[in-house]
Structure formats: structure tokens, C-alpha cells
């Protein structure tokens, strides 16, 4: 067991002694600073949220009367209902230029970058050993191939965790620097299936970051598996990022077919089941997605580990 911990530490050393890993973290921080700067620059001096909310309701009302599109009108009505509920119950909306608002925005907008960064790291973990030839040293020591691959995977999960923590920490620090610490107690009001739901902003953030971690870790797993199967980092990284970026479009196009709910990539974003969101195919549930993910996970890891253990090393 102590040897296995040693193997994981080795993988960590290899990830974090690389300049590229720190560049990725630097990009993340830079992105947050940029977004915070823009947000601060354009933020209205919202001294009184009641006034602006009332103004918004009035504007929405006017638009709703003018439009002839019933769908659009319905969405306007929903927005108005939320604003009205906040006014009636004296719940201040989460401001974009507050720490919590910034953190929620950062997660929504920069979450996909986290997938990209982890795909870059995971996609190189095994294939880089093959391309540099170091795999020959790695596999001619006492640890079995199974332990070597498993240690790499555990290290990948831990790196994903560290990046997620860094994501939260960076967004919090940048938020505090730009907007000042103003508490994390704000609540958010959303309309879920025509019903008003009030939830704590911090609670929503924790839940979404948790789901985000699962999603990122799964994309990491896919990149890791491709990296092991094809021994080619470009393919592993490219495919994972391509799917992460373009699948939403594909998904939208095939959503009318019921079978599309069995596609793995339709099940990776569990935040689809949080209040205010709807899953891509009707009838999908959180439990369904978890089961689909588990089944794919077992198939992917079985193929990956088996191939790594059995195949000849000719690098």
C-alpha cells in the first residue's frame, strides 16, 4: 500500500513539476481577473435593487403586451414572476458584482475550461510515457501494470480535485479583491416547472461545483482512457475537448429521438436536474443519469485496464 502511495506521489510530481500545469492554473486566474474587471467596469451602481427590479418588471410588462409570440410572452411572464416574488418577499437578487454572484458566474462561464485543462493533463498521462520512452522504465520495476495505471488514474482524479479547489479559491479571492467581501448569504430565486423555488446561493454553488467535479472527472476519465488505448496525446486531448465543446449542439439536434438519452455525453451534466433547468430528453432523471454514467464507466475502465495490462510495449 505504501508503495502504491509512492506511485501516486510520483505521478503528482510529474504533473506539478511541469511548467505547463502551472500555465494552465495561471490562465484560469487570468481569466477570472479579466471577467471580474469587465464585470466591475460595466456594473451599474445598484444602490437600490428594489428600484431596478421594479423598473425591469415594468419593462417586461411592456414587452409582453407588444409581442405576438406566445412562447416569448410566457418566458417574459416567468421572469416577471421571479422579480415580483423577490420584491414581495424582500429577497435581494444576487448581484453580479458581489463575491457570490461572481463565483456563480465564473462557474457557469469558465466551467468548460476546467474540462479542457483536465483533458489536457489526463490526455497526456499515459501517452507521454510512451512517446518519451519512459514507459519502459515504469514497467520494468516491481509494481504491476495494474498498479501503475491505477496510480496514474488516482493521481488524475486528485489533480481534478485540486484544480476544482483552485477554481473555487481563485474565483473567491478575485471576487473579494474586485468587489469586496459582502457575505455569502444571498439567496437565489428560480422558477422550476412553473413553481417559485428559493434556494441559498452558497448551497447552489456547492452543489453545482460538486456536479461540475463529476463532469470534469468523467471527461478526464475519457481523455485518460483514450490516452492509454491509442498512446497518442493529441487524439486523446482533441477528442475530449471536441466532445465537450460541440456535443451540446449535436445533443440539441438529436434530442427528439428518445434513444439519445442513452448517449453518455447527455448524462454527464447533472446540473440539468437542478431547479430551473430541464434535462435534454423528457423523462430523464438524476438516478437514470447516474446509472448510465456508472455503466459507461465500468465499460471504459475495463477496456482501458485490460488493454494496458495485455499489450506489448514497443515504444
Amino acid at each position: 500500500m505504501s508503495k502504491f502511495i509512492g506511485l501516486v506521489r510520483n505521478e503528482h510530481m510529474k504533473t506539478f513539476r511541469r511548467l505547463s500545469t502551472w500555465i494552465l492554473l495561471g490562465i484560469l486566474l487570468g481569466m477570472f481577473i479579466l471577467i471580474a474587471g469587465i464585470t466591475k467596469y460595466y456594473a451599474e451602481d445598484g444602490g437600490n435593487w428594489r428600484q431596478s427590479s421594479e423598473q425591469q418588471v415594468a419593462e417586461l410588462q411592456k414587452q409582453a403586451e407588444q409581442t405576438e409570440d406566445p412562447v416569448y410572452a410566457a418566458s417574459l411572464q416567468e421572469d416577471m414572476a421571479v422579480l415580483q416574488y423577490q420584491l414581495d418577499n424582500d429577497i435581494a437578487p444576487i448581484q453580479t458584482d458581489s463575491v457570490l454572484g461572481f463565483m456563480l458566474d465564473a462557474l457557469l462561464n469558465c466551467g468548460p475550461f476546467l474540462i479542457m485543462f483536465i483533458a489536457i493533463i489526463a490526455g497526456g498521462m499515459v501517452s507521454n510515457e510512451f512517446s518519451t520512452g519512459t514507459i519502459k522504465l515504469l514497467l520494468t520495476k516491481t509494481p504491476s501494470r495494474f498498479s501503475v495505471l491505477t496510480s496514474k488514474y488516482v493521481s488524475m482524479l486528485f489533480t481534478t480535485f485540486l484544480f476544482t479547489v483552485a477554481f473555487l479559491l481563485f474565483s473567491f479571492i478575485v471576487g473579494v479583491i474586485f468587489f469586496g467581501f459582502d457575505g455569502l448569504t444571498a439567496s437565489r430565486v428560480v422558477l422550476d416547472n412553473g413553481e417559485i423555488v428559493k434556494e441559498s446561493g452558497l448551497g447552489a454553488l456547492s452543489r453545482d461545483i460538486g456536479y461540475g467535479f463529476i463532469q470534469v472527472a468523467f471527461y478526464g476519465t475519457i481523455a485518460f482512457a483514450l490516452s492509454t488505448l491509442f498512446r497518442n496525446s493529441a487524439l486523446a486531448i482533441g477528442f475530449s475537448i471536441f466532445i465537450a465543446l460541440f456535443f451540446p449542439t449535436i445533443s440539441y439536434l438529436i434530442a427528439r429521438y428518445d434513444w439519445s438519452k442513452y448517449i453518455l455525453f447527455n448524462n454527464l451534466d447533472l446540473s440539468a436536474y437542478t431547479p430551473g433547468n430541464t434535462p435534454i430528453v423528457d423523462g430523464m432523471t438524476l438516478g437514470f443519469s447516474v446509472v448510465v454514467m456508472l455503466v459507461y464507466f465500468i465499460i471504459i475502465t475495463a477496456i482501458t485496464w485490460l488493454s494496458f495490462i495485455k499489450r506489448d510495449v514497443t515504444a
Partner: peptide
């Protein structure tokens, strides 16, 4: 086996630490 490939971005010492842990 063939060339002595090591982790180029690590120091010689860390390379040895790496294999010592194995």
C-alpha cells in the same frame, strides 16, 4: 531498454527519487 530515457523536465535526483519509490 534501448536509450536511457528519463523525465527530462525533472532533475537527475528527482528521477532517481521517482524510481526509488517504485
Amino acid at each position: 531498454v534501448e536509450n536511457p530515457e528519463m523525465y527530462k523536465y525533472l532533475s537527475g535526483y528527482l528521477n532517481l527519487v521517482h524510481f526509488a519509490r517504485m
